[in-house]
Design a protein around this nucleic acid. Structure first.
Lengths: 122, 122
DNA sequence: GGTTATGTGGTATTAATTTACCACACATGT
DNA sequence: ACATGTGTGGTAAATTAATACCACATAACC
């Protein structure tokens, strides 16, 4: 969940909500709600970029943060939506994923398989 | 694409845009744009239900229509978003899917694998 | 008990999205 | 030429979503 992530990141830096908001130019009241999942993650990518910057995240973690934000907003990540090939795969993925109670193990398997397919070299 | 689907469905019934809109209580001008992908698919689920009803779609086709609408709106299908287990799988799916150029064949494989995982009986 | 620091609630404001209205263009048939 | 049917463009209105403002609550400190 986006809100857990960003709250944890702020606390790791031992910043008060207000201090943090001042540094990244966000409204403390709104951010308080964002950190508790009451208000949605920011939709504005520039803000997400700023956060990733501020927390000095690497590319993978940054993407993960972006994904979390998108998902919590019930949105598709922009880069996925913009990639025709990936977007075309979504209906099949959704169709396959639902209608069967996916156990945790099956889910793990599934994800492993996806990983393997994308890294045929190992 | 949602807009292609609904246009095709309407034409199959040999209905003019205006007639169709009158029957399902939609604004013709807006619908004209929806059918051409200028305006987004309706966000209101009730309208999508009405369409599925009108076209007498079975459950699978109805879901497909819902998915198409969601995807064209850059949204996650509601039922997926509401299912914690599925929602939890999304980051891994996105991560796995991007960063590697998925060829059409790989994509087919991937989807087949997902299907298999969900139908261990065959 | 006053003062400062911290987070939060309620609500107003702003912004973005979605939908509806109206007029027009282009055909087709009379 | 006129009327009718069909789809569309432009824009206003309405709805929904996101953000910001301000006041309050609680605790810690002096």
């Amino acid at each position: 969940m986006f809100h857990e992530k960003v709250k944890a990141l702020r606390l790791e830096k031992r910043l008060t909500l207000r201090d943090f908001c001042q540094q990244v130019k966000l409204d403390p009241s709104n951010w308080s709600k964002v950190e508790r999942g009451i208000n949605p993650p920011p939709g504005d990518v520039a803000i997400l970029e700023k956060l990733a910057d501020f927390f000095e995240m690497n590319d993978a973690d940054k993407l993960e943060l972006m994904d979390a934000a998108a998902i919590d907003r019930n949105e598709l990540p922009k880069d996925i939506a913009d990639n025709d090939m990936l977007a075309n795969a979504l209906p099949a993925f959704f169709r396959a994923a639902r209608g069967h109670e996916l156990t945790d193990e099956k889910l793990t398997e599934l994800i492993e398989d996806i990983r393997k397919l994308n890294r045929p070299d190992q």
